[in-house]
């Protein structure tokens, strides 16, 4: 049996954020640091859903595994129950300190994983769609002293010596790369993994009764270990781009000729 911990984060729906931005209606709250997002749904970060899916595929491949989903955040019980509905056996919510940053988040997750014990594989998304940082998994790996493999499209676990190893197909700028790492390790998952499954009705029913195991930050890390290193001071919405010159023409051929006339006149194409 192997134990997999999947780190999941709740984020504002990125498509909705995009739509608000395009409509010029994305606004920052009075604290100057967060989106005004009453109308924007909160979802599991999409890459983290794919991390759950990766864990489930390892189980589907016949590897006996216990799956824990964990999140650092307030009010994330509904998200965690959904993870349980998908197949997580155990769910845990870590209450963040009032001032937090990704270093504190990683410290808490690493402490949780260490305390949980016998964790073979830590899965996470490649990055969170709110801060776009993609640093938490690498920080967890360093804190635990285990290797980190990023941007997986496929993960297979097999027995290796006395323990297990993961064979990971990574998406790199030069195409796919296959690597092998002895567990324990941290692996981050990317969208190339493919569409995650939906919860079944039966599992959703069962998950409704599950409650996340709630852990206070100070039960895991003493306060001085959580002092933020990076403080979000303010956030703003950048100016929209310039004016577009729309090409006129009655037919596709006329439009194409008119465009190339303009491009050639400006020396953009020869």
């Amino acid at each position: 049996m192997i134990r997999i911990v999947v780190c999941i984060k709740e984020v504002p729906d990125p498509d909705a954020v995009n739509s608000y931005a395009v409509a010029g209606r994305l606004t920052i709250g009075d604290d100057g640091r967060s989106l005004v997002q009453s109308a924007i749904a909160r979802l599991t970060n999409a890459y983290d859903e794919q991390a759950i899916e990766a864990a489930l595929r390892i189980r589907d491949a016949g590897v006996e595994c216990a799956i824990t989903a964990v999140s650092v955040g307030d009010d994330c019980a509904a998200m965690l129950k959904r993870a349980a509905a998908l197949g997580a056996d155990e769910i845990a919510a870590i209450t963040p300190p009032p001032e937090s940053d990704w270093h504190a988040t990683a410290a808490l997750l690493a402490a949780y994983i260490r305390q949980r014990g016998d964790v073979d594989l830590v899965l996470s998304g490649r990055q969170a769609s709110d801060d776009d940082q993609g640093v938490v998994p690498a920080l967890i790996g360093e804190a635990l002293g285990v290797p980190v493999v990023t941007i997986a499209r496929a993960i297979a676990v097999a027995a290796h010596g006395a323990g297990h190893a993961a064979r990971v197909t990574r998406v790199t700028p030069d195409g796919d790369e296959t690597v092998e790492v002895t567990l324990p390790a941290v692996v981050t998952v990317s969208s190339e993994l493919g569409q995650p499954r939906y919860p079944t009705a039966a599992r959703s029913m069962a998950a409704r009764k599950m409650q996340p195991h709630v852990i206070a930050h100070d039960a895991l890390v003493p306060p001085d270990g959580l002092a933020p290193r990076v403080r979000l001071e303010r956030m703003y919405v950048p100016e929209a781009g310039g004016a577009c010159e729309f090409i006129a023409g009655d037919t596709p051929a006329a439009l194409a000729s008119a465009l190339f006339e303009r491009l050639r006149a400006e020396g953009i194409v020869r």
Binding site: P12, P14, V17, N18, Y20, A21, L26, I28, L35, S129, D130, D131, D132, R229, V230, R231, L232, E233, R234, M235, Y236, V237, P238
Partner: peptide, 16 residues
């Protein structure tokens, strides 16, 4: 200053 939300916002972080 870093981009966030895919570029929909900019975030200013202080390093202390």
């Amino acid at each position: 200053t870093a981009s966030a939300y895919g570029g929909d916002t900019r975030a200013v972080y202080a390093l202390g």
